[in-house]
């Protein structure tokens, strides 16, 4: 026998970005926390409505950059002053202006790597399975349609209530998302 898994959530479909953004605002103000929105193109207002801009990634990138700066400095200092001191044109061994290109490169490298891997870490990609794809029409999320999915893990989630709530927001379709 197949084990019975709880429902993943309820999903509403929208055919235009205006209703979509309005729906996100409505879901948010109705008190739902565990929800996600899907759109075929980046919509600044949608990200704003979901409050996505306050995430930790910029801070992580900043820390990555600072770490890169420190590592670069340590590398340049260790090679130039401690491990292999070399008199170049009578300059002091600790000639920081010569470090600047290295420091810049290391800062950018560490910051960029932090941005890529931090992004993957935070959004959980790559993922080999996600229940939202059980809704057949969800394939349109990469073409022309917009989706909002309220997940069953949300404390406010109630199958009938949430379904009715989403139906009041959209003119297209509301469907249950199988696990």
């Amino acid at each position: 026998m197949k084990p019975v898994l709880p429902l993943h959530g309820v999903m509403a479909e929208f055919d235009n970005p205006t209703e979509f953004v309005a729906a996100i605002h409505a879901v948010k103000s109705a008190g739902y926390e565990g929800f996600d929105a899907y759109s075929p193109m980046p919509i600044e207002e949608a990200a704003e409505a979901m409050g996505l801009h306050g995430n930790k990634l910029p801070l992580m990138v900043l820390c990555g950059g600072i770490a890169g700066f420190c590592c670069g400095y340590a590398l340049a200092y260790w090679t130039g002053v401690i491990n292999y001191p070399l008199n170049i044109g009578g300059r002091p061994l600790h000639s920081w202006p010569a470090y600047i290109p290295v420091l810049f490169e290391c800062t950018v490298l560490f910051a960029a790597l932090t941005a890529v891997f931090g992004m993957l870490g935070l959004n959980g990609l790559p993922k080999h399975y996600h229940p939202v794809f059980n809704v057949e029409r969800f394939a349109l999320a990469s073409r022309s349609r917009f989706f909002v999915c309220i997940e069953a893990t949300d404390p406010k989630f109630d199958l009938e209530d949430t379904k009715r709530f989403l139906q009041s927001l959209t003119t297209v379709e509301v469907s249950e998302v199988q696990p």
């Binding site: 044109g89 300059r91 202006p97 010569a98 600047i100 290109p101």
Partner: peptide, 12 residues
């Protein structure tokens, strides 16, 4: 600015 400075500084 740094490009100019660094080249002048390095060549000395």
């Amino acid at each position: 600015n740094l490009s100019q400075f660094l080249i002048v500084w390095s060549a000395n």
